[in-house]
Amino acid sequence: MKKSPGIILKGQHRIGDRVLFNTDLHIPGAQWTCLLGRSGVGKSTILRLILGLETGGVFSGSFAATDGAPFAGRISYMAQSDLLLPWLSVLDNVFIGARLRGEAPNVDRARDLLHRVGLSDYADQKPATLSGGMRQRAALARTLFEDRPIVFLDEPFSALDAGTRADMQELATDVLHDRTVLLITHDPAEAARLAHQIIVMSAQETQNWPVPETAALRDINAAETLACQAQLLAYLRRSAA
């Protein structure tokens, strides 16, 4: 695959008369960027805007990929809710994208991806029989099946228990290492652990937050990770006050 492109977004988003955000974002290619900020500050709106989804407001400004090509067909998206279709088997869910585009699905590739996320034994089961962590892994396999250079993750791990969340972070980092990932999270620990770049967003500005110098997917217990996490948390609490 060609190197995944970065994203530049600059402009103002309004809902009615209210300015939701005024931002100037630079998201580097083939890296993990974590976007933090208070609820309602418009983090998800940024994803929706670039994905071409309904945002309930008007954006004035511009956004583009750094390689100049359009975004269409180059972004895959994973949300907090796994959005697995309950009537389909796990395997069928993985290649639902192909079905929705009217293409013949590559079943072998879907099986490979399920193997990669550790769900080989569950390929023919319905999502209802899976645990929350397994369902998110199936959703990750579905995201990978789309094989897009840019991946938007909207709090995909926030509903998982702490242990499962740490496992999912490691798995996602591994399988998405060459993609441009934009991860929205409320969890400073997650950002401190995963990010190549951290952006803290408020209504007025977006601010690049210093990340530890160690390589991403940092040790949870490392002093730098913990320090970064603590400073982020303190900042978020101050700005919420």
């Binding site: 895959s76 949300a79 959005l83 929705l100 585009r101």
Partner: peptide, 25 residues
């Protein structure tokens, strides 16, 4: 569920295929 619709749009779904594979079931 609007989540299904968003996901399908991001996947480049065809309107009829969305009806067939998601809305109807």
């Amino acid at each position: 569920d609007s989540g299904y619709r968003d996901l399908s749009i991001s996947m480049g779904a065809d309107k009829w295929k969305f009806m067939q594979h998601i809305q109807i079931p």
